[in-house]
Design a protein around this nucleic acid. Sequence first.
DNA 1: GAACTGACTTGAT
DNA 2: AATCAAGCCAGTT
Length: 107
Amino acid sequence: MKDFTKKVIETISEIPPGRVASYGQIASIAGNPRAARQVGRILHSMSAKHSLPWHRVVNAKGEVVHFKADRQRELLIKEGVEIDVHGRIKMEQFRWMGPADEDWIRG
DNA sequence: GAACTGACTTGAT
DNA sequence: AATCAAGCCAGTT
């Protein structure tokens, strides 16, 4: 396993409930801002092995896209994440800025 | 180990 | 807003 993979796992583990992050955001924090696709790939492969909150990871548009999307939207709503009628998360409000994002939503 | 795949992203039309 | 095209790189075959 590469360091990048481990970093991605750690980063995703850092995502607090009620917040979401995009694949590109995770990739950037993990050190490879261009490796957005790999984040998805890593989740697909590693989430079951690392119990990662992969449901808090969405694409840049704030949409959950995979085969379990409908199931996870419910989980996100339960955590307090609001989703538009179009199925899009309000990234403006719920996007996680990274491990240093202690400030929560500012106004 | 080369080719193929894909839980993505950005820019242009 | 929706569609098309190119870039990126780890994992699988």
